[in-house]
Computed example of a mutant assay.
Amino acid sequence: MTPALAAALHLDDDLNPLIRDEFLRDVLNGLSQRQKTIPPKYFYDAAGSRLFDRICDLPEYYPTRTETKILRESAQDIAARAGWDVALIEFGSGSSTKVRILLDALRLPAAYVPIDICGPHLEDAAAALRRDYPQLAVTAIHADFTQEVQLPDSIRGKKRLGFFPGSTIGNFTPPEAEAFLSKAAKTLGAGADMLVGVDLKKHGAVLHAAYNDHAGVTAAFNLNLLTRINRELRGDFDLSAFRHRAVYNAAFGRIEMYLESLKPQIVHIAGDVFAFREGETIHTENSYKYTIESFHRLVKKTGWKIREVYVDREKLFSVHFLSR
């Protein structure tokens, strides 16, 4: 491999207009529903990505530190199962922090392919990995990983290990999670493996604290969605007229995040008009929690097989090694 190829870094900036058009369609459609809603993938502009990085360091937010501990303790076993010369593909890579644990453990990884919807955050993270792993081919793809993604020709013929950490699988409804795993199987191809981080069911008070932190970082993260709409879609949301609310819905086994209107008001977005009643909400995110058994029942419908499950001692979080 030549040094130029080893240090390759590719960002597809042509996707920006397409993502922006889809953003507008999704916002206008979502706010036209009886229960107003905006898909959570739009949290992650540059500011939202930075805020999420801060959330991951909060004392109340157990998923990041717990999953990180699991990965450190299990990295050698994961590497042995994955084998040599593997191309590592991360869906929703963010700051690409946890992947370093895998890169340090894998036997001569062939490449790293981070996929993320936030171009600037992706570029910064990929550039940092390029500096720290100069012999690793880094091909960053700016894309919505929930859609079909074309992987680079440079990893053709390589065995592939998908990586989907952070309990992001919980942002999907169970049918959506099935669809994503099925689509990821097609993207990665025959013979691939995949690691998936899954948050486990636990006491509602622990979950409530994790999504309603005392410092207000999660609230700022949620409200930043309105800032992004104002900036990119010609919106005029008054952020002081909305508040963050996160509740645990035990019947569905999920955290639900909302932005609640504090008064009757009118909002304009790209020429469209939306009325809000006092107390009316925009549903911005679900975070489903699973048992080991319920997640495995879901996986069996998607063409993957369970090879191993890694769980912390307190049984807060799990990492699942899947194979095709």
Results as ranks from 00 to 15, higher is better:
Met257Arg: 01
Gly235Asp: 14
Tyr258Arg: 06
Asp272Pro: 00
Leu136Glu: 03
Tyr44Met: 06
Thr291Trp: 11
Leu262Tyr: 03
His268Pro: 03
Asn230Thr: 07
Thr168Trp: 00
His142Trp: 04
Val113Tyr: 12
Ala7Asp: 12
Pro40Gln: 05
Gly279Ser: 11
Asp45Arg: 12
Leu9Asn: 09
Leu71Tyr: 05
Val206Tyr: 15
Pro3Asp: 14
Gln35Ala: 13
Asn286Phe: 11
Pro152Glu: 08
Tyr211Glu: 09
Pro264His: 09
Val86Ala: 11
Met257Trp: 07
His244Trp: 06
Pro3Gln: 09
Thr168His: 01
His296Trp: 08
Gly235Tyr: 09
Ala275Ile: 07
Asp57Lys: 14
Leu103Glu: 01
Arg234Tyr: 03
Gly271Val: 04
Thr64Gly: 07
Thr227Gly: 14
Thr168Gln: 02
Arg100Val: 07
Thr37Cys: 14
His283Cys: 00
Val149Arg: 07
Arg277Phe: 10
Gly216Lys: 12
Pro114Val: 04
Glu148Lys: 00
Asp26Cys: 08
Glu123Arg: 03
Leu262Pro: 00
Leu136Gln: 01
Gln35Gly: 01
Trp84Pro: 07
Val138Gln: 04
Asp57Glu: 14
Ile282Asp: 02
Glu256Arg: 02
Ala209Thr: 11
Tyr290Ser: 05
Ser240Ala: 15
Ile78Thr: 06
Tyr42Trp: 15
Gly83Val: 01
Thr284Met: 13
Leu24Val: 01
Leu51Glu: 14
Arg231Asn: 11
Gly204Ala: 15
Asp85Arg: 10
His214Ser: 13
Gly216Pro: 11
Gly189His: 04
Arg160Ala: 03
Pro165Val: 04
Asp77Asn: 11
Asp26Tyr: 14
Ala250Asp: 15
Val267Lys: 02
Asn16Phe: 05
Leu259Met: 10
Val99Met: 15
Leu200Glu: 11
Ser294Cys: 08
Ala177Asp: 07
Ala143Leu: 12
Ala251Leu: 08
Arg50Lys: 08
Phe221Asn: 06
Pro264Arg: 07
Ser182Tyr: 05
Ser287Leu: 05
Ala185Val: 03
Arg65Gly: 09
Arg324Asp: 00
Ala219Tyr: 12
Arg254Ser: 00
Asn16Val: 11
Ala6Met: 09
Thr173Glu: 09
Ile55Trp: 15
Glu285Phe: 07
Tyr42His: 08
Phe276His: 05
Leu103Lys: 08
His142Glu: 04
His203Arg: 09
Leu151Thr: 06
Asp272Leu: 09
Arg160Pro: 00
Thr173Asp: 13
Arg100Ile: 03
Glu90His: 03
Arg313Tyr: 13
Leu106Gln: 03
Val299Trp: 12
Ala210Thr: 09
Asp124Gly: 06
Pro165Tyr: 08
Leu28Arg: 14
Ile269Trp: 11
Ile141Phe: 07
Asp213Trp: 14
Arg100Tyr: 09
Arg324Gln: 01
Asp14Tyr: 08
Val196Gln: 06
Gln76Arg: 15
Gly235Ala: 10
Ala209Glu: 15
Asp132His: 12
Ala8Gly: 06
Pro17Gly: 10
Tyr133Asp: 01
Gly92Phe: 04
Leu28Tyr: 11
Thr187Lys: 06
Thr2Ala: 03
Asp272Tyr: 15
Lys201Trp: 06
Leu122Asn: 09
Asp132Leu: 14
